[in-house]
């Protein structure tokens, strides 16, 4: 994951602001002009204008990218944002990829990879503390993540059943969350219904 990545690309914001100004209005995008935004825009191919302390200021993209983390370099200014390139062996924050079936490699804010065991990640959640392993996300497909479940974790006896998935009811049985497939014994359309009174339950509808 070392491809250049656009940070804070919000071309639509800039276009919208410009479009809403009538011809003779002077847009306030010069250095020193007042601003209230996290957006930036390209002054030229190498520099951007950034809103700092509520005033537009010129920033060289080289300086901007270096300021994000050690070793981060600039690939110029495009689409109203400085394009920053990770250091060799580094990554762009937000990237995540499975190292193996139980370990996730993720990109921290210092633009460096960090590894974490999915069991550790899940154990910090309540109640989804059991790890199902490291797997690809459906959306965005380019990323992986740790998947955690509450199935098999402990629960208080008075815990209320809930719909874990559209066709799966979770019930607290003997102090453990048990996932029950609603299609068991259903010849119609099975589903978990959160709206049943007094609490969620499986139902089987026939058309």
């Amino acid at each position: 994951m070392s491809a250049p990545h656009i940070i804070f690309a919000r071309a639509s914001f800039f276009a919208a602001v410009v479009a809403s100004c009538s011809v003779e209005d002077r847009p306030l995008y010069d250095a020193g002009d007042p601003c209230r935004t996290l957006e930036m825009y390209c002054r030229d191919e190498l520099a951007a204008m950034q809103c700092l302390d509520e005033k537009w200021a010129e920033v060289e993209c080289t300086d901007y990218c270096m300021g994000l983390a050690s070793g981060v370099s600039s690939d110029g200014c495009r689409e109203n944002a400085c394009v920053c390139v990770p250091p060799p062996g580094g990554c762009t924050p937000g990237d995540a990829a499975c190292e193996n079936t139980s370990t996730l490699r993720w990109c921290a804010e210092d633009w460096a990879w960090a590894s974490v065991d999915c069991g550790v990640v899940c154990s910090g959640l309540v109640p989804q503390s059991e790890s199902l392993g490291c797997m690809p996300l459906v959306e965005p497909a380019s990323k992986d993540a740790c998947f955690c479940t509450s199935e098999g974790t402990s629960c208080a006896e008075d815990s209320v059943p809930f719909c874990a998935l559209e066709g799966t009811l979770a019930e607290c049985i003997d102090g453990t969350w048990v996932y029950i497939d609603c299609d068991t014994g259903c010849t119609g359309e099975p589903r978990c219904n959160p709206g049943l009174a007094p609490e969620a339950g499986c139902e089987c509808t026939t058309s």
Partner: peptide
């Protein structure tokens, strides 16, 4: 309370 995906 169902399954979740997590990225630190």
């Amino acid at each position: 309370l169902g399954p979740v995906d997590v990225i630190p």
